[in-house]
């Protein structure tokens, strides 16, 4: 079944890697991108994706803040915090929001972790 995925990261390279790995596993999924938390919130309002990957450190609001807003409005979206910032405080914050923090770098193993979470 086709799913819609929103990839949120200010790094073009990171978005490229996430897209490549997800497409390799699910070529039929529709992948859109956002480069800031604010863009992500607008994109979710417009497209209501099934899944979302969210970086933390981006220009503008933190990805964790954007995730909180998105999950507050759309609790059925499966959202994964995908970040290099794996401090315990952020891991706890992700758990408290009802999501998970997957450690970068983006590779087959980390994408597999995200896809497993998406599948519930």
């Amino acid at each position: 079944m086709t799913k819609k995925v929103l990839v949120v990261d200010d790094s073009k390279i990171s978005r490229m890697f996430i897209r490549q790995h997800i497409s390799a596993k699910h070529p039929d999924w529709v992948i859109t991108e956002a480069t800031t938390g604010e863009e992500a919130i607008a994109a979710v309002d417009a497209e209501q994706p099934d899944y979302c990957t969210m970086d933390i450190n981006m220009p503008g609001i933190l990805g964790t803040d954007a995730a909180r807003i998105i999950l507050g409005k759309y609790p059925n979206i499966r959202l994964v915090i995908f970040s290099a910032n794996v401090q315990e405080t952020y891991q706890e914050e992700a758990r408290a929001m009802g999501t998970i923090l997957v450690s970068k770098p983006v590779n087959e193993a980390s994408i597999a972790q995200a896809l497993e979470y998406f599948a519930g």
Partner: peptide, 26 residues
């Protein structure tokens, strides 16, 4: 992106070892 990965790994390690949360810029 490499800097993001390496430097956040470095900072996260220090932050968790010392139990001192750190906020990092891009």
């Amino acid at each position: 992106e490499l800097g993001n990965i390496m430097m956040n790994a470095y900072l996260s390690s220090i932050a968790d070892t010392l139990h001192m949360p750190i906020d990092s810029a891009v």
